[in-house]
Design a protein around this nucleic acid. Structure first.
Lengths: 211, 211, 211, 211
DNA sequence: TCGTAAGCGAGACGGTACGTCTGGTCTTGCA
DNA sequence: TGCAAGACCAGACGTACCGTCTCGCTTACGA
């Protein structure tokens, strides 16, 4: 989350409660105000904490919001629903539900926007959000392979590339549908999306138009 | 772009050159500073224009940037490359190239982030960017249908839904790959993505696991 | 008071009312809070003015307070009371009355303290307060010479040195009595002080112990 | 200097060295930074002491500086130079030399300024600085009376009043000359000042203009 | 051709948030 | 219990932008 000189053994230790209070206050402020009107002074007030305490732990608004939002995605699970299609539909609906939270959507996109110019921030987003949730793809694929729904991967490189592609397609489509198109991710849409995705991944190599 | 009381016939007319200068200055500032450090005062200075002039035409930073960025996407074309796959690959590469421009990515995502809390802004984004480029999907599909690569649509409702789905999947995947994953949209990735998408759209209804 | 690029003819002119309001608010805040608890934000609020407006005109707390306090001393007058002694007693009492004002004493000493490390500030104090009031000494001496109470000055250098000495003795004694000793400058004290001063200035050169 | 519960017999005793180190560090910081930029955190660091230790002994910046500065004036002496005039000249020059020290002038005036609103502080200044040095006036007068340069005092009340007046005149004039007028207290000025003062004190009651 | 209404650049205005700094207090672990 | 270290709350600092408002001037239309 945030680091600290490892050699500091002396002095008063940092309050663990403050961290949690600040992150919760950040999410609360995102709900009430949205990203652009969220101020660190207000977050500090909501958390019952001095601004200095906040700045001691986070370098700025971006870093704080990444951490506050990243926690939300840890709620994602991949329960075994019996088939790959059902597993995908389930996790996509969960993902969409989180994305629909006001504390998630405003902050997440703003941080992504800022990350386009700030490598450290992009790395933080990738580590805290993207890579942390990529587990869902890997887990889902392994389960589908065990069920025989997907063939085993020929080589690790291709496996990683495919996993990345799937993640970009799933996350990208849901995010775009929700935030850019402004349409709901309902069961009907999810069914259509999952169908296209799964067929694309499992169909025989009868590349149609090129065939 | 921006409206003006229609009854104003008298008085000095607004400078047409100012509009273009402001939008160009906005893009220039996006390149130099990124969204978050871009200030309207700075844009006005770069455009050689007073702040008043800028505010007379745009309501704020968001609206200005939407207009400045939207123009960039008008460069997208859909030349006939002989097959649907080739057409898709071509337009995806063009789209990725525009998204890679610093003046596009930072501003676009920031505006999308802001639009999550501002309906008028979301509408503006949709009208200026999304709907304006959805023509590419419609045009590409019509062409593929003429070539016999895709079957004709059974009913208009389904046609519209599928077009939306395709747009969300294409735009979403490219945006996610570029801005969130921070990976390049190169020819290899585009080929893999197009394959999955096309197979998903054209494969017979052998929904594998659910079958 | 504060200067501004003389060539600026364009743009909105500075509000003259703001200057007066700020100086009055400063004196009011000095009364209520004293120097050390006076904040520029509070002064701005009292004056109904934005902090920026205040900082556009004064570089900091010190400069502002010098100007606010200096105005108080402009009320000093030297009415002709018939004799040098009476004139001195009158002006000393006036001076003591101003020094007893809470808006004067706290700010004045603090600024003098700060001026010990800041040449520009010392110069400002000298110009705004000291030199502006030295007129009283010169006027009083001229009047006394016209009455024949004091001999004419032999040469201008000595005249200036004596004027400076008188000013330091009068102002210093009153300030010290008021602020350091914390005793009132009442009529009895003024009579004693004036007697010593006048005898010192007019007695024959019978330097007693050295004689 | 500062008190401590007399009943505290248990626990670790306070470091006597810490007191001296803190006062010395305070003077050092006054030289380097002046009053307004002096911070207690910095003083603590210079003294190699924790802020807690410092606050256990002094209530705040004001009290600390009073004590740090007051020690400087203990160096004043009144060697017998043979005549009252010479004695005065000697002590005035010593006093001016101390006032010229950067650690003295900035802190002293600031504390006086603050004392205008803080009775406890004024009392502390009077006790630590003013009354402690008033001995010089009393001693000098006694010596002059022994020499026959001054008549014995008729009654104790008048004696005290005159001593106060002399102290205010001497200290006030030197302080004003040094800090407000910003002129050096050199031998020439001291000679002139002493002459006026002594004549004022010893001349016959030929109040000139009133006579 | 001339009046007039709106546009224009400049820059001051009242606000608000920034990120930093200091003042004093409190909480650790060691001596 | 004292001490060094350093985190804590509170709040002022001086700066930067915001979006609005005067200014004095310019420009095009229409009478």
């Amino acid at each position: 989350m945030q680091s600290r000189s490892p050699a500091s053994r002396t002095g008063r230790p940092r309050s663990a409660a403050a961290d949690a209070a600040i992150l919760a206050a950040t999410r609360e402020a995102l709900v009430d105000l949205g990203w652009s009107k969220l101020t660190l002074g207000d977050v500090a007030t909501r958390a019952g904490v001095a601004k200095t305490t906040l700045y001691r732990r986070w370098a700025g608004k971006h870093e704080l919001v990444v951490d506050a939002v990243a926690e939300l995605f840890d709620a994602l699970e991949l329960p075994d629903r019996g088939s790959l299609a059902a597993d995908i539909e389930g996790v996509v609906l969960q993902f969409a539900a989180i994305l629909a939270l006001p504390e998630a959507k405003s902050g997440l996109m703003a941080v992504v926007a800022e990350a386009t110019r700030d490598d450290a921030l992009r790395e933080r987003v990738r580590a805290s959000v993207v890579d942390r949730q990529k587990r869902l793809v890997l887990e889902g694929r392994a389960r589908a392979q065990a069920r025989g729904e997907l063939p085993p991967e020929p080589d690790p490189g291709a496996a990683a590339r495919t996993a990345d592609l799937i993640f970009d397609m799933v996350a990208g489509a849901v995010v775009h549908r929700t935030l850019v198109s402004g349409q709901p991710v309902d069961e009907e849409w999810v069914r259509g999306f999952t169908q296209v995705l799964l067929r694309g991944l499992t169909a025989q190599s009868t590349r149609p138009a090129a065939g």
